[in-house]
Nucleic acid binder design. Structure first.
Lengths: 204, 204
DNA sequence: TTGCCAATCCCTCAAAAACGGGATATTTTC
DNA sequence: GAAAATATCCCGTTTTTGAGGGATTGGCAA
């Protein structure tokens, strides 16, 4: 069984690297590559590969959005996310948007092959490293309400409760309540640690 | 003139990609590769390439430190920094530690060749993108003193002035002064915006 | 040697945040 | 239709901060 593989990544070096890793593999057929989301989509109008290796960061559109769009239009294509770092939030979002696997860019050829073969059969591939991160992330998963997100953004912007209240047309007491809830959710003891944690978790 | 090139990067895909990009170039001789700082250093004991392509992020040691070490031991080797993103602070530090150039991982083959050839002659290569970032960074360059960095870290950790003072064996008034200076340097109006800005500028 | 800068410490006062409650209305979900 | 989540508001008290000052020491460089 031969699987055709397409790759979307804005780094030539990575495209070349993967091509080089896969070129002598019997089970792999090189469908082509794109360096941005737009040319990936136009390629898919003419030809559907079995598997797409998709970088999460691209100039015109994030891999996360592209993944969603591709899966909506072509549900039969299997997508493997690619990224340099173990970024908790990205992996989750990529999987939520229909990716079947996630591979780090330091993967070995064997891992990559394993991922492609599994995913092409409709299964899911997550390397040990990735699934460890994913598990950790789920434990510490923080869900913010719409209002809490707004308040958090404005706190990070340096506004006081009164200023935030004015901006959102609510009383400063309400802002204070949201603030308390944010501190509780992030297990932060004050504004400084709240912003640090939220920033590192990429809420802001 | 033939230049021998060695590469240090913890991502196989990138190593493969660069090898693939360079393999048919007449002026390039492939000296070898390493996936971590330690094996790079042990390679250099036996053989010195003309140019080292060095990733900034590696498991055992940052490219920034490795760059410094290599240049101290083998000043004749020219180093080109490699990274995925245009990270202001890293580029500067890499150049400060003796790198002769900086290339983004989305560089084309032509750019890479140009960089290697220029750098091997002792010149400096910075792609347009990179030098733009560097210039922008210099404008908004914020220099913190040792103490200010320590205080900033602890503020981000959620400690109060008194707690920070206890930790650093200084009075809380002193901490307050450092805090004021931090606010001024970052042009932040309060702790929340200070931490946000510092976090986004990767000071913490 | 004469500055400059970093680092240290002190003061006051007002503003803001943190902490501890409690309370009500409206959605959403089960 | 009841329960849970969300959003709204209020109180009082204590702690922390922000914004002004001013002052001393030691090191380094012009």
């Amino acid at each position: 069984m031969t699987n055709s593989v397409f790759i979307v990544d804005d780094h030539y070096m990575v495209i070349e690297g993967i091509r080089s890793l896969l070129q002598n593999e019997k089970g792999i057929e090189w469908a082509g590559h794109a360096t941005n989301a737009a040319s990936c989509l136009s390629f898919l109008q003419n030809q559907l590969p079995d598997v797409i290796l998709m970088d999460i960061s691209m100039p015109d559109k994030s891999g996360i959005d592209l993944c969603k769009e591709v899966k909506e239009k072509y549900p039969s294509v299997f997508i493997i996310g690619l990224s340099t770092f173990n970024q908790q939030s990205f992996i989750q979002k990529m999987m939520d948007n229909g990716a079947s696997g996630y591979v780090l860019k330091n993967a070995t050829q064997a891992e990559l092959m394993e991922a492609i073969e599994l995913v092409a059969k409709g299964k899911t591939y997550l390397s040990e490293e990735v699934s460890k991160v994913l598990r950790k992330q789920n434990d510490a998963h923080i869900v913010l309400t719409r209002r809490e997100k707004e308040v958090l953004e404005l706190i990070a912007g340096g506004l006081t409760n009164i200023e935030i209240g004015d901006k959102l047309f609510i009383s400063s007491s309400t802002v204070d309540t949201h603030r308390k809830n944010l501190l509780a959710k992030f297990q932060a003891k004050n504004t400084a640690s709240l912003i640090r944690i939220a920033s590192q978790m990429e809420f802001i």
